[in-house]
Design a protein around this nucleic acid. Structure first.
Length: 283
DNA sequence: ATGGGGGCCTGCCGGC
DNA sequence: TGCCGGCAGGCCCCCA
C-alpha cells in the first residue's frame, strides 16, 4: 500500500511528535507483525529520546539517543496516528483503541503515536544506528528516486540487457527504491511506455526520460499528502488526495485523459499485480 | 540468473 | 440477507 509519497507524508506528520521527544511508555500488544518484534522492545524504547526522523525508501527510521534506530515499515495496510495534545497544555482524551492497534507510544509531550495494521504485513525493528546502512533490509536498496544518485545514466545502465518487463524493473527496489504499483502505472502512462515492454528494449533517451517523470509523479503525490484508497491516512487522520490525479490506476474502462486520445484504460495482470494503461498512448 | 507464482493476513465489495 | 470468490498500496521465498 503505502509507497514513497505516503511514507514521506507519514514521516513529516510524525516528526513533531518524535523529534527531540522522550518516549514515556511503549505498549507492545502482540509478538510481532511481519516478523517478531525485537527482544525487549518496550524496555528499549522506554525513556529513549527521538532524534532525527528519516526515510529510506518505504522505511521510516527514527534515530534514538541510545544508538538504536526504530525502523518502521507500513506494509500494505499500516497506519500511524498521532493523537493527544503535544503541548501538554490541555486535558485531551485519546480516541478509543481500535482493532489492530498493535503498538502505542506515549510521548513526554503528551502525544500518543499508534501503529495500526489490519493485515500485519508491516514491521518494526530496533537496529544499531551506526551499522544501519549494512542492515539486510537497507543494504539491498537502490538509490532514492528523489536523490542525486538517481539519474539517466544510472537508469540506462541498470536497464541495459534486461529482459524483465519495465513494470517489474521499476518495482524492483534494488533498481530504484520507493516505487510501488500505483506510481509505476502512473509513471509509465506519462512516459508513454507499455508496462509489458522489456526494460532492455527501451531506447536510452526514453529510459533517461523516466527519471524526471518519476521525480515529478512522486513530488506531486507528496505535495498532495499521498494517495488514499482504503487504508492510508495521514497521521492526523486526513486523507491524501493524489488519487484524484490518477490518469490510469484503478481507471479500467475509463476514457484516456490525453487530449484527443479516444483510447480506453485497460487492466492486465503482470506477475500477480494489476497494471493499468492506455493502449493508444503507451507503446 | 531472473521471473513468475504463492504465501503472508484481514477487510471489503460485487455477484449470485 | 448471506456466503464466496476476487482483489488490495509490499515483500520474501521457492521453483523453473
Amino acid at each position: 500500500m503505502p509507497e514513497l509519497p505516503e511514507v514521506e507524508t507519514v514521516r513529516r506528520g510524525l516528526a513533531p511528535a518524535m523529534e527531540g521527544v522522550v518516549i514515556k511508555a511503549a505498549d507492545i500488544r502482540r509478538e510481532g507483525l511481519r516478523w517478531p518484534f525485537p527482544d525487549n522492545m518496550a524496555a528499549r524504547l522506554r525513556g529513549a529520546r527521538g532524534e532525527r526522523l528519516r526515510r529510506r525508501s518505504k522505511y521510516i527510521l527514527a534515530d534514538l539517543d541510545r544508538g538504536e534506530t526504530l525502523l518502521i515499515h507500513l506494509g500494505m495496510s499500516g497506519r500511524m496516528q498521532v493523537s493527544g495534545d503535544p503541548l501538554g497544555q490541555f486535558h485531551h482524551d485519546h480516541p478509543a483503541a481500535l482493532k489492530h492497534d498493535h503498538v502505542v507510544l506515549d510521548m513526554a509531550n503528551g502525544a500518543r503515536i499508534t501503529f495500526n495494521d489490519a493485515r500485519r504485513f508491516g514491521a518494526m525493528d530496533l537496529i544499531d544506528t551506526a551499522t544501519l546502512a549494512q542492515h539486510p533490509l537497507i543494504a539491498v536498496l537502490g538509490p532514492e528516486p528523489l536523490g542525486n544518485a538517481f539519474d539517466g545514466t544510472y537508469l540506462v545502465e541498470r536497464f541495459k540487457g534486461k529482459k524483465t518487463p519495465v513494470k517489474s524493473a521499476l518495482l524492483d527496489q534494488g533498481i530504484v527504491a520507493g516505487l510501488g504499483n500505483i506510481y509505476v502505472c502512473e509513471v509509465l502512462f506519462r512516459a508513454g511506455i507499455l508496462p509489458k515492454k522489456h526494460a532492455g528494449q527501451i531506447a536510452a533517451p526514453a529510459v533517461a526520460a523516466l527519471v524526471p517523470i518519476i521525480r515529478d509523479v512522486l513530488s506531486e503525490a507528496i505535495d498532495a499528502g499521498g494517495s488514499s484508497l482504503k487504508d492510508y491516512k495521514q497521521v492526523n487522520g486526513k486523507l491524501g488526495y493524489f488519487q484524484h490525479s490518477f490518469a490510469v490506476y484503478g481507471r479500467e474502462t475509463c476514457p484516456c485523459v490525453t487530449r484527443g486520445c479516444d483510447g480506453v484504460i485497460v487492466r492486465i495482470n503482470q506477475s500477480g499485480r494489476s497494471s493499468f494503461f492506455c493502449p493508444q498512448c503507451q507503446r
